[in-house]
Amino acid sequence: MSSASEPLQEQPSICEVLQIMGAKWGFLVITELFKGPKRFKQLQRDVAVVKTQSLTDTLRLLEHNGIVRREVFPTVPVTVEYSLTDKGADFHNVVAAMDSWATKWGKRGGDVG
């Protein structure tokens, strides 16, 4: 068990996962990109609850963390496509584990009584 005074660099690597999951819309964007690469407007339509600036900020955070790849195509106008990196695609295991946990222990499952 780690102490509260333990330096950040010595914290478990789970902190990186929690930082990504803690991003307000990160989980939703990652889940959408599991379906395949998308242009910004297409992604924006698919996650309609997310405002434009929030989506931009989320994509930047995920790109910074190596989860999302941003590819620019030299077209007129410029086309930008977002996709998951290998690291992002492997995140599917995390999502599947969370889904399994939610099924077992969510509001309707695993009630103790």
Score class of each variant (00 low, 15 high):
Pro7Gly: 02
Pro74Asp: 08
Glu10His: 05
Pro77Cys: 10
Ile14Cys: 09
Thr31Cys: 06
Thr79Glu: 14
Thr58Trp: 03
Glu71Cys: 06
Arg70Asn: 11
Glu10Tyr: 07
Gln42Leu: 12
Arg108Ala: 14
Lys24Phe: 06
Thr56Glu: 13
Pro7His: 03
Arg108His: 13
Leu28Ser: 11
His92Glu: 15
Cys15Arg: 06
Val49Gln: 13
Lys38Val: 00
Phe34Arg: 07
Gln44Met: 08
Leu33Phe: 03
Trp25Ala: 10
Thr75Phe: 09
Gly66Leu: 05
Val78Glu: 11
Glu10Met: 05
Gly22Trp: 02
Leu8Asp: 02
Ser83Val: 09
Leu62Pro: 08
Pro74Gly: 02
Arg69Gln: 13
Trp105Val: 07
His64Asp: 11
Arg60Cys: 07
Val47Ala: 09
Arg39Ala: 10
Asn93Ala: 12
Ile30Asn: 03
Thr85Gly: 10
Gln53Cys: 02
Val49His: 10
Lys35Ile: 00
Val72Gln: 13
Ser2Lys: 04
Leu55Arg: 11
Gln42Ser: 12
Glu10Val: 00
Ile30Trp: 01
Val95Glu: 08
Thr56Ile: 15
Asp111Pro: 11
Phe34His: 07
Ala4Asp: 09
Ser54Leu: 05
Lys51Glu: 13
Lys41Ser: 12
Trp101Tyr: 13
Glu6Leu: 06
Thr56Lys: 15
Met98Val: 11
Arg69Asp: 11
Phe34Cys: 01
Glu10Arg: 04
Lys87Tyr: 12
Ala4Ile: 07
Trp25Leu: 01
Ser54Asn: 15
Trp101Asn: 06
Met1Ala: 14
Trp105Gly: 00
Trp101Ser: 10
Ala97Trp: 06
His92Leu: 15
Phe73Asp: 01
Ala23Lys: 00
Lys104Gly: 00
Ile30His: 04
His92Val: 14
Gly113Ile: 07
Ile67Tyr: 02
Ser3Leu: 11
Pro12Met: 01
Ala4Tyr: 08
Gln9Val: 01
Ser3Tyr: 08
Lys24His: 12
Gln9His: 04
Thr75Ser: 15
Phe91Gln: 07
Leu28Lys: 12
Ala89Val: 05
Gly36Cys: 08
Gly109Asn: 04
Ala102Glu: 06
Pro74Thr: 01
Phe73Trp: 05
Thr58Gly: 09
Val49Trp: 01
Ala102Ser: 13
Gly66Phe: 04
Val17Asp: 09
Phe34Tyr: 13
Leu28His: 09
Val112Met: 15
Gly106Thr: 04
Trp101Pro: 00
Ile14Ala: 13
Pro7Thr: 02
Gln44Lys: 15
Gly106Ile: 04
Met21His: 03
Val78Phe: 03
Ile14Arg: 09
Ile30Ser: 05
Glu63Val: 07
Asp86Pro: 05
Ala4His: 07
Lys104Cys: 04
Ser13His: 04
Leu8Pro: 03
Leu62Val: 08
Asp99Arg: 13
His92Lys: 15
Val80Lys: 08
Arg70Pro: 02
Ser83Glu: 12
Gly66His: 06
Gln53Val: 13
Trp25Lys: 01
Ser2Asn: 04
Asp99Val: 12
Gln11Cys: 08
Ser5Gly: 00
Gln42Lys: 14
Pro77Arg: 07
Pro37Ser: 12
Lys41Ile: 01
Val94Gln: 10
Arg39Ser: 11
Thr79Phe: 01
Leu33Lys: 03
Tyr82Glu: 09
Glu10Pro: 00
Gly88Arg: 10
Asp86Cys: 06
